[in-house]
């Protein structure tokens, strides 16, 4: 079994607070791995590092064998790289102008300065993979952004639901599909056959996903009008829409009643068996964690205090202490 994700000695510090300290962590392919720990243990911070929202203070995240996230290095060099080519052209223009070139040459020089500046700036903003590789040649490393992680194959949900509240359930799932759709703005403007075909296919697939989440009948309702449990499942459906390899679920059963929880647990199990997903779960409900996890990692005060099968973890004295406090306390 290969590892989908490997967190190497990840540390995150917020000012004086050490939120995550030197955590080593792997997720094997096809597994359901859970991350548990008391409140404030650093689970969500760790999760957000993996999802590309924070840069770690130290350490790195390897996703599908590639280093994706680490502390950025020489980030100041990047804007310089944008400006230098344009300045070079500008300088050449000035020199040529001083040497007595014609107005047309100077105009062309200005034109190319502007174009050069624009191209590098737009490339810098879009950050395609080739550009990232180019930057590494100058020793510049920038972590993958959340959207880059999605493109690489990571889907996530949020602890406090973050749906696009005023869009329909269907549109939410369609947004989730964004990174897998190819229609450009030009396709959309011209309403090309390709665009129309893709859009129809996307809709059909979105309906399938809603079906999987048990929301087919509610596809056209505004997301914020859905009941709580449905919103949670819609968020999962939206995360699935990008065809992820690894799905991060941040407390998916928080605030659910026992029946909803049981349904969701079943759904998570189906995601693995039917879609072959690897899942990382942050969860408070121990029945859920112990029921479906292959492996459980326990964090406390930002440090990994235990790891193993659910049974091993359950018996680990350190874990019991972390959750119940020391006998003296």
């Amino acid at each position: 079994m290969t590892d989908v994700l490997h967190a190497v000695n990840v540390t995150k510090r917020f000012g004086g607070l050490l939120a995550v300290h030197d955590v080593e962590f792997t997720i094997p392919e096809g597994a359901i791995v859970s991350l548990i720990g008391p409140n404030g243990a650093g689970k969500t911070t760790f999760f957000n590092i993996i999802a590309g929202i924070y840069d770690p203070t130290a350490g790195e995240i390897r996703f599908r064998g590639k280093r994706m996230i680490a502390r950025s290095r020489r980030a100041w060099l990047e804007p310089l790289l944008w400006v230098v080519p344009a300045l070079a052209v500008a300088l050449t223009t000035v020199l040529v102008g001083e040497a007595g070139a014609s107005d047309i040459v100077i105009a062309l020089g200005i034109f190319f300065t502007v174009i050069a500046l624009m191209i590098v700036m737009v490339v810098g903003v879009a950050r395609p993979p080739a550009y990232a590789d180019f930057l590494t040649r100058f020793g510049v490393f920038r972590s993958a952004r959340p959207n880059d992680m999605v493109v690489a194959g990571l889907g996530r949900t949020f602890q406090n639901i973050r749906l696009f509240a005023n869009m329909s359930a269907l549109d939410n799932v369609l947004v989730g599909m964004h990174s897998r759709l190819k229609a450009t703005w030009l396709d959309a403007l011209l309403s090309t056959p390709r665009d129309r075909r893709e859009e129809a296919e996307a809709r059909a697939r979105a309906m399938q996903l809603l079906d999987l989440a048990g929301l087919r009948k509610r596809a056209h309702e505004t997301a914020k009008n859905l009941p709580y449990g449905d919103q949670r499942r819609l968020e999962i459906a939206r995360a699935l829409a990008s065809n992820p390899v690894l799905l991060l679920l941040d407390e998916p059963t928080a605030g659910m009643n026992p029946r909803e929880t049981a349904d969701l647990t079943k759904l998570i199990g189906r995601l693995r068996t039917e879609l072959g997903l690897t899942i990382l779960l942050i969860e408070h409900d121990m029945r859920v964690v112990m029921g479906i996890s292959d492996r459980v990692t326990v964090l406390d005060h930002g440090e990994r205090i235990a790891e193993g099968t659910p049974d091993e973890v359950r018996r680990d004295p350190k874990v019991i202490e972390a959750y119940l406090g020391t006998p003296a306390a």
Partner: peptide, 8 residues
């Protein structure tokens, strides 16, 4: 490499 980058 990693430990050294923690700021003092």
């Amino acid at each position: 490499m990693i430990a050294s980058s923690v700021t003092t």
